[in-house]
Computed example of a mutant assay.
Amino acid sequence: MKRTEKKRKDIIDAAIEEFREQGFLGATTTSIAKRAQVSSRTLYNHFDSKEALFEAISEIMIERNNCMEPVPYDPGRDFAQQLKDALWRYIEVITEETAIGLNRMVLSELIRDLERSQKFFNESETHDYPITRLISEAMNAGVIRKADPGFATNQLLVLVKGFFFWPEFFLGENPTPKEVLADCVAMFMAHYKMGT
């Protein structure tokens, strides 16, 4: 990693900690620079404002939530099992400790600032979930009925996140039994079965 890249990463890491502890309004670029052990001038060479720093962190969060490779459909395997396997990988990514911390920090600010929230969600909508490809290709193969694959993915993930992401986010633990994932997939399959 080049020296300038390392300084940029140090600034972002420091900003995440500062935003987490002080909130967006309480955080200052001076405190962030001090945490990162860089001058304010160096910070401003990388980010022209506290808002720019927050946007960079928001983008990192979106990228982390989408860091799984798109999952292709395998016609030689049971589709429901493929969905379960892909969803478990996705759950592991979004409930990893750093990812949860980033989500808490960013979402707390989005609740406070409607304009920033709208901008964030507009940006996040341009990213495809890794499971969208699997669902799209299964639709094209005639395994499940055709529909908008992005919409179908969102329906499934709302169910899954309700049981496996939000308890971790709010409680720091997940009391949901693993078997619940099979129920989520079964509901999805019942809704998208051929002939409905």
Rank of each mutant, 00 (worst) to 15 (best):
E69P: 03
F165V: 01
G162W: 02
G76C: 12
V71A: 11
P70D: 01
A141K: 12
L159I: 03
F164Q: 07
P175A: 04
F163N: 10
I131L: 14
N154C: 11
L157E: 07
P72T: 04
R112M: 10
K146Y: 05
E115Q: 13
F170T: 13
N174P: 01
T153E: 05
E97Q: 15
E125T: 11
Q82C: 03
A182F: 10
Q82L: 09
E123H: 12
C184A: 03
E125L: 12
V71P: 02
R104H: 06
T153N: 00
R116G: 02
S108Q: 07
M105P: 10
G76D: 14
L83V: 04
D74N: 13
S136N: 12
R89T: 00
W166K: 11
K84G: 05
G76K: 15
L134N: 00
R104Y: 02
N174L: 10
F165M: 11
E125W: 13
Y129H: 09
V143I: 07
L156W: 01
P75E: 07
I135V: 07
F121A: 05
A152K: 10
I91M: 04
D113Y: 01
F170I: 11
V71L: 11
T98Y: 14
V106H: 04
D148N: 15
P167K: 10
A152W: 04
A86I: 01
L171H: 11
E123T: 09
H127L: 12
N174A: 08
W166L: 13
A80K: 10
T95R: 11
I94H: 01
L181R: 03
E96R: 13
E173W: 09
I131H: 04
K161I: 08
A152S: 06
N174T: 03
N122W: 05
T153H: 07
L171F: 09
F164M: 08
F169I: 02
A141Y: 11
D128S: 15
P149D: 02
D85G: 12
F164S: 08
D74Y: 08
L156A: 00
E69T: 14
V158G: 15
I131V: 09
E168F: 08
R116P: 03
P130K: 02
E115R: 12
P175I: 00
L83Y: 04
A86T: 06
F164Y: 11
A99V: 00
I135H: 02
D85R: 15
A141V: 09
P70G: 07
R116D: 05
E137G: 04
N174H: 06
F163C: 08
L134W: 09
F165K: 03
A182E: 14
L156S: 02
D128Y: 03
V71S: 01
K178Q: 15
